[in-house]
Simulated assay, not measured.
Amino acid sequence: MTRIVAVTRILNEDDIVEAFVRHHAAHVDHMLFLDNGSCDRTLEILKALQDEGFRLTVFQSASASFDQIGANIWAYQMASQILGADWVVFLDADEFIATPHAVPLVTQLPEGQVAACLPLVNYGQTPEDDEREPVVPWRMRWRFAAQNEVGKVMLRGGLPGVVMEAGNHGVYQAGAKLAAPRLEGVFLAHYPRRNGWQVLQKIAAGRLKALAAGMQGEVHSRHYASPFETLRDKPWELFEGRYLACDLERRDGVEAPLAYLGGSLQYWQPSRPEMKALQGFLQFAERLARAHGRLADEVPQAKGLVEAWNAKREFLF
C-alpha cells in the first residue's frame, strides 16, 4: 500500500490549520509539522486534533531566522526514514489539495516518475465573503482568473542526496534539477490572504526573519522586500488605501469552490484581525531580539563582533 506523508512548516495559522488537517486526512496517511515558533493557538489546535485521532506529528524549531532549505531536507528525511513515506508532498497550511472528483491523491500518483508538480491556484477575498464562516475554503469561493506558473513539488521517499528549493518549488539531486511534470487535474487551492491584517503581519515578520539570517535570507525573501518597505516608509498608503479591503473583485475572478473534505470545525475561535496581527508581530519581534541577545551573551565570536560594532564610530557630516 502506497504511503503518503505531508510535510508542512507552520507559523501562526490558527485560523486555517484545523480545516487543513481535516481536509488532508482524506489524501495523506500522516502529516508532519515543523512549527517555527507559533504564539497563537496553532499548537493547541494541532494537539487537540492529534488527541482526536488524526495522524500527525509536530516538531518545533527554536531558530528565529531563516533556513528553508535545511528545514526542507530535514523534513524530507524524517518523512522518508521515520514515517516510512513512499511519497512526500510539501504543503503550506494555506494550500489544500484538489483532485478530479475529489478522489484520494493516491489514485493520481504518477507511474515511472520520482517527482511531480502540483500547480498553485490562488483564491482571493471578495466583498461578498461571509466573514462569519470559519472554514476558509467554504468562505473563499472565488479564484483569480489569471493564474501563475508556480507549483509545489512532491517526490518519492527515500531518494538519496535530494535538496528542495526554498519554497518547495523544485528539487535537485546530485546538482541536477529533477523533472517534475504536472499531475493532470490535480492542483493546490491556495488561500494566502484571509484578511489584509494577516498579510501585513506575515510580510513584516517574514522580512525580519529573513534579514536575521544574513545573505541567504536576503536572497530568498525578495518578494517581501517591496511591501515591507512600503509598510515601513509609507504605511498610510496601506492603511488609508484599499489594501485592507478585499483583494479580488468578482469581475476579475472565477467562482470555483474547492471540494472541501474536512467537515465543520471544533476548535476554531473568532478573533479581531487587527489585534491578532499586532500581537503576533510583537511576539515574533521579541523572540527575534532575545535570540540575538543570547548570541551576544553566549557565543564568544558573536560577542566580539557585537562589541566591535558597538565601539565603531562613523563620521556622517
Rank of each mutant, 00 (worst) to 15 (best):
L231M: 13
V219L: 12
G206P: 10
P160Y: 13
A212Q: 05
G253F: 06
Y172P: 02
V153E: 04
Q201L: 03
Q173I: 08
G196E: 08
Q216H: 02
M275N: 11
F144N: 10
K209E: 06
P227I: 05
L200Y: 03
G217E: 01
D233H: 09
G262M: 02
A189Y: 01
G161H: 15
P160S: 12
L258N: 05
F281T: 10
K276I: 01
M215I: 05
D247C: 07
K202H: 15
Q173W: 11
L248N: 09
R194W: 05
A180C: 06
L208A: 06
S271I: 02
G253N: 09
M275R: 14
G175W: 14
Q266F: 02
A277V: 05
W268Y: 15
L211W: 03
E240Y: 04
F187M: 01
A245C: 06
A225Y: 10
Q147C: 10
E249G: 07
F239G: 00
Q147T: 14
R222P: 00
L258P: 07
H223I: 07
G157R: 07
A212M: 12
A285T: 07
L208C: 04
V219E: 10
E149F: 09
R222Q: 13
L183M: 15
F228G: 01
A176H: 14
L265Y: 00
K234A: 13
L278Q: 13
N148S: 14
V199G: 00
Q283H: 10
L178R: 09
G158C: 10
G175K: 12
G158D: 11
P235N: 01
E286I: 05
R156A: 06
K202F: 13
Y260N: 03
